[in-house]
Structures are given as C-alpha cells and as structure tokens.
Design a protein around this nucleic acid. Structure first.
Length: 377
DNA sequence: TATTATT
C-alpha cells in the first residue's frame, strides 16, 4: 500500500543581505559580482519540468542573466530545484512575489533568494523521528531554533487521517555545523512533557533511492534512450488517465510508463468536464503539433491578463513549454487572447476539456487547439 | 522511519 503523505512547510524567505541598491549587477570592491539580490533558488519543482519550461516560466517575469534546473549528474533526472539569476534585482523581487506558491501539477513551488553557495551550507538537513503526535511544526522549530537558523522544516502528516502528524519530520539548518550541534543536543532527548525521546540524525542523501524510485528512474532512463537524445528530453508521463489515443507529437512508447507513474499521481482538475466541452476535441480543426508540442488557443482573457495567469491555469494539467499573452502594441493590454504550448497530447486535451467554458472572474474562457485559421489571423 | 535547498 502506498501511503499518501502531505506536508506542512514554512515558506522561508532567505532575504538578500545588505541594503537595496539601484538596478543592475552589484559590483563589490574586490571586483566579484554580488548576485544576492538577483539570484533565486526555486524549490519543489514538478519532477518532469524541463530546463526549457523552467526558463520560460521565470523568463516571463523579466530578463534572465542565467538559469539552471539542477539535475542528477548520473541519471540526468531533475532534482526538483533550480536557480534563476535575473539581470535586474527588481525582477527577482517580482518573481518571488508572483511565482512563490505557484501550484504546478502536484507541487507548490517555492521561490526565494539563494544563499551564497558554500560548503558550509551543504548536508545540513536533519531527519527527526519519535516526535510527539501533538507537536506541530512551530513547536518543532522552537525546539531546534536554539541551535541555528532554520531554512525549512516540515512534519509529515497522514492525509487519510486529515493531517495527523506521523511523528517524523525534517529540519534544514542554514549551516551544517548548526545541524551537528542540534544532533548533539537533541538526539535521544525527551522534548518537554514528551513520554518518549526523539531521534535526530542527518537525513539520508536524496541519491539513496527507494526500490520504487529506482525502478521509476530505470524506466525513465530507458524511455529517454528509446525516444532519442536531447530534443526528446521533454519525455513526459501523463498524470491523467488516457483520453484515448490522440496523436502524440514526440512519443509512441509510453503506456507502460504511464501505468507506472500514474500510481503515484492523483487526478487533479480545475473544473468538471462537460460533454459540451469535449466538442473542442472533435479534431476537425487540429493543426497537429508545432515543433515542441501542442499549441492551445485561449480566448476571452481580460485586458489585465498576464503570462502567470496562463501558467496557473494550464500548469496543473501537465507539461507546459510556453505561454504567451497577445498584447496591444500601444496600450500593452491583453487583446483578449493568448496561446499555451503543451508537450503531451493527453495533457493538452485534458486541459482543454477542463478549461474550455471555465469561468475566470466575470469571463468565460474559450479554449481549443489552435486552428490553422487562427494561425493566419 | 524519509522530503527532495546550493549550481
């Protein structure tokens, strides 16, 4: 049986050090660039998000100096986090304000300033077990905060029992030596009023996979090999039940993988599918995949609509590679429509079925595959 | 009794 776990986590903003300065890279007296106000770390990215999607999402905020989705050196799998360095510190701030907390598929991404990279901040993550079930996240933080600055904390909760603590959790300190001190001070100790002592140790390295994860990874690696190099790295595994086989732009070998991975994903939809909305799937107007995926036409957006709206709407359905709001050249207001590119036919079809007719504010969206007619407009 | 935070 698979235990579904949900978590509670504090969103910690690391905050840039120093005072705010005018735009542009900050050059310190020793000549090195200070990117503490432009460089962001993004956590809890969906496993299947690609570098291109990552760049596309954060590029919608402002000009990016550099960005990197961090991958496992050996397997190439996303490690679920990445870095974005903006040219303008204001855009970094804007990215935090608009994208932190964004829900993408099953994840809620976290966007915060990156700490300066250093060996002292690595391996500072602790695994805690034997916690009293009554202890909440705040209590746990209070217990550990005497040893240093806490970057993240979470207590694992059982979803089937509506959020009851499982008595285990994680604490990430800013510095490894702080984590070491916390182990010395708290491992084997009874928290105030607790009946049993807690266990505190360094968390297992993420590279030490469970059997399931290893199996998944094996299949993913095999699938990538099978479908070819680089331009097929956007290989996706649908998180929704198959809608019947539409043409797939870049993959014909995934049913096994779908079955493997669907087990761990829930079906998540924004709005009920109506029979009417399925008419948009009739197929007569389909243009087929253009380049990297399936282009979707979104009509009846408000003049204030921006790219983040489209990410918010379509992200939960699967792999989105690009979003674009069409704006009036002079007013810079949305002309009422936009486009979204999705990698997988099934996910695009599910997004269309769910979002066509979706009420956004006081407007009812019209969503369909882009047609050749619209293409010429 | 284990999630994915340092390029």
């Amino acid at each position: 049986m698979v235990t579904i776990i949900s978590t509670m986590e504090t969103q910690v903003s690391n905050g840039p050090s120093g005072t705010s300065l005018p735009n542009g890279p900050v050059i310190s007296t020793n000549g090195s660039t200070d990117d503490s106000k432009t460089n962001l770390i993004v956590n809890y990215l969906p496993q299947n998000m690609t570098q291109e999607e990552f760049k596309s999402l954060f590029g919608s905020i402002g000009e990016i100096e550099s960005c990197k989705l961090v991958r496992d050196k050996i397997t190439g799998q996303s490690l679920g986090y990445g870095f974005v360095n903006y040219v303008d510190p204001n855009d970094a701030d804007k990215a935090i304000n608009t994208l932190n907390g964004l829900k993408l598929q099953t994840k809620t991404i976290k966007v915060s300033y990156a700490r300066p990279s250093s060996a002292s901040i690595r391996d500072a993550n602790l695994y805690v077990s034997g916690l009293p079930k009554t202890m909440n996240q705040k209590d746990m933080e209070q217990l550990f905060s005497q040893y240093g600055r806490i970057i993240t904390s979470r207590i694992l909760v059982d979803q089937v029992t509506a959020g009851i603590s499982r008595g285990v959790g994680f604490i990430r300190f800013d510095k490894r030596n702080e984590a070491e001190e916390a182990i010395k001070g708290l491992n084997g100790q009874k928290p105030l009023g607790a009946a049993e002592p807690i266990t505190v140790k360094f968390a297992n390295n993420p590279s030490q996979k469970t059997g399931q994860a290893l199996l998944t990874q094996l299949y993913q690696t095999a699938a990538r090999r099978y479908t070819g190099p680089l331009h097929h790295q956007t290989q996706r595994f649908s998180m929704i039940p198959s809608l019947g086989k539409g043409p797939d732009p870049n993959n014909s070998s995934k049913p096994i993988l779908d079955n493997l991975l669907n087990a761990s994903y829930g079906v998540k939809r924004f709005s009920p599918i109506t029979i009417d909305s399925m008419t948009s799937l009739a197929g007569v107007n389909l243009t087929g995949p253009t380049g990297a995926g399936w282009c979707i036409f979104v009509y009846n957006l408000s003049p204030e609509a921006d790219e983040s709206v489209l990410w918010q709407l379509f992200g939960p359905f699967g792999a989105v590679t690009n979003v674009k709001v069409i704006r009036d050249f002079t007013t810079n207001k949305c002309k009422g429509f936009g486009f979204v590119t999705m990698t997988n036919y099934d996910e695009a079809a599910m997004a269309i079925a769910s979002l066509n007719g979706y009420r956004l504010g006081d407007r009812v969206l019209q969503v369909s595959f882009k047609t050749s007619k619209q293409h010429k407009a």
